[in-house]
Design a protein around this nucleic acid. Structure first.
Length: 651
RNA sequence: GCUCGUGUAGCUCAGUGGUAGAGCACGUCCUUGGUAAGGACGAGGUCGCGGGUUCAAUCCCCGCCACGAGCUCCA
């Protein structure tokens, strides 16, 4: 965030970005005319528009938008030229000190502090330039459009705050978002698309279609799957279950909690303590602690003291082979207790370790729909995409070094099968590498290099472009993520495949090789959906609630034209049920138009309209939610068609 | 967690310093109608929660909770 673009990168700005960047200057000008002492920081174009960050005592609210927009219109009409001027560093600093940068006039006593910071960041020897439009002068490398009149198709979108320099420890600035297009038509179309997108928001559809709920009395970020949503989820799980059997996975089940010691060994507890629910301390220990007169705060301190020491010990050992007897020793000071599991791997590892393994046993592939709990900050929760308890379609593969490449390819193939079956083609692939500067990663560099190379090679076999992103790895290894955007443009990681040389070491996993010596297996963590919650959320938006028949909670609704056809409709309903088709019968006193409307609003794939004509002919009149009237057919043929459609999971 | 905004019936939303309203959904009855809304009547609310100001608070003030947007974070 807010990384300085190089001059080369700036030169590559598209025409649209250039326009929006200019609009940011116009916006700043308008704000200054209304509030002359505003101090501006960054104002770049972004994917769907632009923003400018600024400091201002007056809190901008949406009520202020009309007057800012009116002022922007006026400025566009004044149609000043954008003029570029190269100046020396000294001149730039002098202008900033006078408050002139990011201002309409000199502002004594109100220096352009953010601009001074920016100047400092400009490498020595690089050209420093200003852009002026009317009275507004800004420190800016450009480029810009030639005249302000290009910026007339503008709309302010939202006001929010942002940390200065993207740093949580720094002050928060106001950030005003706008969007702009070359023509009014394009702007209107964009705004229309935003309205359309809102209609497919999974939070809205989830409520309307009764798929899931998040209830205040249950807790923030804890998803309740309603009966209809549960059908959807169960179908997804059946689907992936079939694929897993084909690929030689074995199903396991594990509990929702594990001992703190387990997570000390895995590294979760010391490393990610702040992202976990607080430990569950055994009653006996709580009583002891209480007897000693420990306050809550002291209990927390004891946990903290121990965990920070653990962290130090583990960091000391980073980079060398660690085996079980060298693990963190049980610690008398550490309160005994349990953790709600943040990941399933430790449990699966202990399943693997139950019996000695030989190279002939590998790979071992253990799968579970495992529910995990993570303490996400409250402001980050939302809908199904970011929650505190979620179920991963998880599996852990234990294999030999030689098998890694092939297993990775198998995992990626599985993710692709899943996405193709659902028609989700609009995704990007990210290879997450470690950030060499961060202490958040365990293991030694050679292992990481091997694992990263394996991921890179596997990703290259996918046949889709991928990006490599340092700092995006899991703490135990690099990963290949499938990333998809939601309806408001936010990106979410769904499927993921991760290579792990670290946890087998921490848990001292071994297998007997052909040489009859102990060898270290390699682990692969993978989840094609990622989490059932997040995936379902994205899926709802992908289909806009119009699920393919195999996923639809209700597949067929039988609607009667009048009471006269009720007995025939009843028989059809019974036959559909006997054929395992999820259906209902609407024999209410509504008119047929109303019944059809209701079925449409419920987004049920098929309606069978049953009246006197059908009674006489023995046919059913078929209406599809998206394709409309499909004419009549024998019931048996309809059932056969739907059954095939469901079995083959057609879209 | 931070900033701003929002919170009124199951849903979508009006509204007021004097304890509330619409449409849809729901219930009953009438209607038996052929591919996106037939009609009548009825029931339904501690106006998010807790304090404060006031003769009086759903409305004003403060705190909390939840939701939304953005930021930060995301094993």
């Amino acid at each position: 965030m807010n990384e300085r673009k190089t001059l080369e990168e700036r030169a590559q700005m598209t025409d649209l970005e250039r326009l929006r960047h200019s609009c940011a200057h116009i916006m700043a000008t308008a704000i200054l005319r209304l509030w002359p002492n505003a101090q501006f920081a960054y104002g770049p174009p972004v994917e769907n528009g632009y923003y400018y960050d600024f400091e201002l005592d007056h809190r901008i609210t949406p009520d202020d938008f009309p007057k800012i927009e009116a002022e922007m219109k006026k400025i566009a009409k004044e149609n000043h030229k954008f003029e570029r001027k190269v100046i020396s560093r000294e001149e730039a600093i002098a202008l900033a000190n006078s408050g002139r940068l990011g201002g309409l006039t000199e502002r004594p006593g109100n220096a352009s502090q953010f601009k001074l910071d920016l100047i400092e960041k400009i490498p020595v020897g690089e050209e420093i330039s200003l852009y002026q439009n009317g009275d507004f002068i800004d420190l800016c490398a450009g480029p810009h459009v030639n005249y302000a009149s290009k910026c007339k198709n503008n709309k302010l979108m939202s006001i929010a705050s942002a940390y200065y320099m993207g740093d949580e420890s720094k002050q928060q600035l106001q950030r005003l978002y706008g969007t702009a297009f070359p023509t009014t038509e394009e702007l209107d179309k964009h705004l229309e698309q935003l309205e359309e997108a809102k209609k497919r928001d999974h939070r809205k559809l989830g409520r309307e279609l009764q798929l899931f709920a998040i209830d205040d009395q249950v807790g923030q970020g804890l998803v309740l799957w309603l009966p209809k949503g549960a059908i959807l989820r169960q179908e997804l799980q059946n689907f992936i279950g079939e694929e897993l059997r084909k690929q030689g996975y074995q199903q396991v089940f594990t509990p929702h909690i594990g001992k703190l010691e387990l997570y000390k060994t895995s590294g979760h507890f010391p490393y990610y303590k702040e992202s976990q629910f607080a430990p569950i301390i055994e009653n006996e220990h709580l009583a002891e602690v209480a007897h000693e007169g420990c306050t809550c705060a002291e209990v927390m301190e004891r946990l903290d003291a121990v965990s920070s020491r653990l962290r130090d010990e583990i960091n000391d050992r980073a980079g060398r082979e660690v085996i079980a007897h060298d693990r963190v020793k049980p610690d008398a000071e550490l309160l005994q207790g349990f953790l709600l599991k943040p990941m399933n791997c430790p449990h699966h590892i202990r399943i693997f370790a139950q019996t000695p393994k030989s190279y002939r046993d590998l790979p071992v592939r253990l799968a579970e729909f495992g529910t995990v709990y993570r303490w996400e900050k409250s402001g980050e929760l939302g809908g199904l995409t970011r929650v505190r308890g979620f179920t991963q379609d998880d599996a852990h593969l234990f294999c030999t070094e030689d098998q890694v490449a092939q297993e990775l390819i198998g995992c990626l193939a599985l993710v692709k099968t899943v996405l193709n079956t659902l028609g989700m083609t609009d995704y990007r692939v990210r290879v997450g590498l470690r950030d060499p500067d961060s202490s958040k990663f365990t293991g030694n560099p050679e292992q990481w290099d091997k694992a990263e190379a394996a991921c890179r090679d596997a990703a290259a076999t996918l046949g889709v472009p991928f990006t490599e992103e340092p700092g995006e790895a899991a703490f135990y290894g690099p990963k290949i993520d499938f990333v998809i955007k939601d309806v408001i443009g936010r990106e979410w990681q769904l499927g993921t495949v991760q290579v792990d040389y670290v946890l087998p070491v921490r848990f001292d996993l071994t297998y007997a090789g052909a040489d009859n010596k102990a060898h270290r297996p390699v682990m692969i963590h993978r989840a094609p959906f990622g989490s059932m919650e997040r995936f379902t959320g994205v899926l709802i938006e992908h289909f806009a609630g119009h699920f393919p028949t195999w996923l639809a909670p209700e597949q067929v609704r039988v609607v009667t034209v009048s009471e006269k056809s009720e007995s025939f409709a009843q028989k059809i309903y019974t036959d559909l049920q006997a054929a395992n088709i999820r259906c209902s019968l609407d024999n209410a006193a509504d008119k047929i138009g109303a019944k059809i409307r209701n079925a449409q609003l419920d987004k049920i794939p098929y309606m069978l309209v049953i009246g006197e004509k059908e009674m006489e002919s023995g046919n059913v009149a078929i209406r599809h939610a998206r394709k409309g009237d499909l004419g009549v057919k024998l019931l048996a043929d309809f059932i056969a068609d739907v059954t095939t459609e469901v079995r083959e999971r057609l879209l």
